[in-house]
């Protein structure tokens, strides 16, 4: 999936103040490329990630994905587009607490109205959790939860993975193992990935690093 970000600006109202989060950002990501967005807290990494997922509209500028302007789509079209093309991995895993591991992984396929059960089982097997299909998130360790989250992000074979500090909540060793898994899977499937992190070591594993400082690309 080819992404083009052109002169994007974004600001938020905070009380009487207007905070400029992104300032005239431009960025290209090639199909199958893994890009790491590196920056400090408040630099606008997560806002940019949200925009790439069609979750937040820019104040100005364009975001085109495969030559299609994302924000010309209606809400409903955006939903469908996200369901078909995007997988998201979060720092805090964000599994749905009342669904089992298998049900969490099945969800993206169910949204697409596709056969989910065998596919979900296969992906959980891929991430090493074949024995944990019926476990609820609270019954899993942090590393296991993140592996379920990766399986859930990949199960619908999305063309773009958005990962927001995916190892930020794990200890070093678990984090490394889980990131190995994520990178392996993304590369195997030739999926484009935009990875937000402030961990330079992790960023180095990406094809390219984009530094975001005070809302600008450097």
């Amino acid at each position: 999936m080819k992404i083009t970000v052109e002169n994007v600006n974004k600001s938020f109202e905070q009380g009487k103040n207007k905070i400029h989060i992104l300032k005239d950002i431009s960025l290209n990501v090639a199909d199958g490329e893994i890009v790491a967005l590196l920056g400090k807290s408040g630099s606008g990494k997560t806002t940019l990630l949200s925009m790439l997922g069609g979750l937040e509209k820019p104040d100005s500028g364009n975001i085109t994905i495969d030559q299609t302007n994302l924000y010309n789509k209606t809400e409903s079209e955006l939903c469908d587009w996200r369901a078909q093309n995007i997988g998201i991995v979060f720092q805090q895993f964000h599994l749905i607490a009342h669904l089992t591991a298998k049900e969490n992984v099945s969800l993206p396929l169910e949204i697409l109205n596709r056969d989910a059960e065998s596919e979900a089982e296969m992906w959980l097997d891929k991430v090493g959790l074949k024995e944990r299909l019926t476990h609820y998130p609270t019954m899993l360790s942090g590393g296991e939860q993140q592996r379920v989250a990766i399986a859930r992000a990949m199960v619908s074979k999305p063309r773009l993975i958005l990962a927001d500090e995916p190892s930020g909540n794990l200890d070093v060793e678990t984090g490394k193992r889980v990131m190995d898994l994520l990178f392996d899977i993304v590369k195997q499937n030739k999926t484009t990935m935009v990875l937000v992190t402030h961990d330079e070591e992790l960023a180095k594993r990406a094809d390219r690093i984009v530094h975001l400082v005070a809302g600008k690309c450097q």
């Binding site: 997922g53 409903s76 939903c79 369901a83 995007i86 964000h94 607490a97």
Partner: peptide, 16 residues
């Protein structure tokens, strides 16, 4: 609200 956000992020329509 958390699961609603997740449903949204995963592309589930508002109607559903």
């Amino acid at each position: 609200i958390k699961e609603m956000k997740l449903f949204f992020l995963m592309g589930m329509t508002a109607e559903k």
